[in-house]
Computed example of a mutant assay.
Amino acid sequence: MSQITFKNIETSRTITLDVNQRMLKSSGREIHIQDSAVLVSLHRLFTRKEGVVKYSDIACVVREQKSAFHMEDCPDGIIANKYIFKTRSILKNLMIDDLIVTVRGLGYKVSEKWLSIVDENKDEYQKDAFLNTITSIIDDCIKYSKDAEISHDKSGFSFIKPSKDKVLENFSRIDDCYNSFLTYYSEPGNSIELLELREKITKVLLYVIYWRVGDSLSDDKFRSDYKNELNLLLRQIKQAIDLMR
């Protein structure tokens, strides 16, 4: 991949590293990277999936691009610091000072504020897949409620009494969907949004296993309320997901 683009999730600003042209581009500005060690170090930072680029990795890059004897008596940490300083100086010329963060005692990584466009597309795919599944479950439940018999007890409560197989099927679908989404998005920056989403999903769960109870409602009113309340929860879930990064 000759071009790699990152996007700041707070400002929506982007920065692109064009390896073939040895260019950094952002907001209409372009800077040619003359130092090969800086270019390769940036490429490592932009492509390191596990996050941290260690001091030793950067020092190795520098020696490969310069010579085996370049700063030969210096510890890896000092070499890495020198070339990351050069890299940050270039970034400042693009008015960017928060792209690279120090991981004390280990090395450097791209700030969590900056997300790879590839990762961003993957995020959107995950969100869309989750919403599509939740929407499908809700649509199926609303459809089921239209034909299901509405039971009424002596207290005046109305409810749907489905088969256990139907309850287990719906529970399994929403449980698998939610836990998959939770695993992907579990990180400190999403904690508040995930709690809000969990609250909404818990409410949806009560509907999809048909624990929703109406008080002295006609069958038509029960079905109408059931549908409207589920659609409201779906809109709230969409809003909660939109706030996630």
Rank of each mutant, 00 (worst) to 15 (best):
I33F: 12
G156R: 08
S111L: 12
K25E: 02
N179L: 09
V110S: 04
I84K: 07
K127C: 13
K82D: 12
R198W: 07
E229D: 15
R29Q: 05
I33C: 06
E50N: 05
K221C: 02
V62M: 11
S26E: 14
N231C: 14
N179A: 03
K86C: 01
D119E: 15
L168G: 13
S155Q: 06
N179Y: 03
K227F: 04
F69S: 04
Y226A: 02
F69D: 08
T183W: 12
K203Y: 10
L24T: 04
P75A: 13
L39V: 08
V118Y: 06
H70W: 09
D98N: 13
Q236S: 15
V38T: 06
K166W: 10
A148I: 04
K221R: 04
C60P: 00
Q65G: 02
F69P: 02
Q65F: 09
L234S: 05
V62C: 10
N93R: 06
I134C: 03
D176H: 03
S163G: 08
F69Y: 15
L115P: 00
N8Q: 09
G28F: 10
G28V: 14
K161D: 04
K66D: 13
N228C: 01
I15T: 11
F222N: 00
P162Y: 14
D18S: 00
G107E: 03
M1R: 07
D219Y: 02
N8I: 10
E72Y: 15
S27K: 13
K54P: 02
G77L: 15
Q236L: 12
N121P: 10
S2I: 03
H70Q: 00
L42N: 04
S163L: 14
K161N: 00
A68R: 15
M23K: 11
E149T: 07
I79F: 13
V38E: 08
G51N: 05
K154F: 14
T5W: 06
N20V: 00
E196K: 10
L194K: 13
V19A: 06
Y226R: 02
A240D: 12
F69W: 15
M1C: 00
S151V: 11
K25F: 01
A59N: 04
D139A: 07
V110E: 11
V19F: 14
L94R: 06
L217I: 04
L232H: 08
Q126P: 00
I4K: 05
Y185M: 05
V204S: 04
Y184C: 11
D176R: 00
R44P: 02
S136L: 06
I209C: 01
Q3M: 13
I33M: 09
I90D: 09
S191N: 13
R212W: 03
E120N: 09
S158Y: 01
G77N: 12
L168W: 02
L243R: 15
S111V: 06
K221W: 00
L195M: 15
Y178A: 03
E112Q: 01
N228H: 07
L205Y: 07
I79H: 11
E30M: 09
D18L: 03
E187Y: 10
L233V: 12
V101K: 13
D139C: 08
I58Q: 10
I142Y: 06
K82G: 11
R13K: 15
S12C: 04
R48H: 09
N190E: 08
I90Q: 07
N121D: 08
E229S: 06
Q21R: 14
I209F: 03
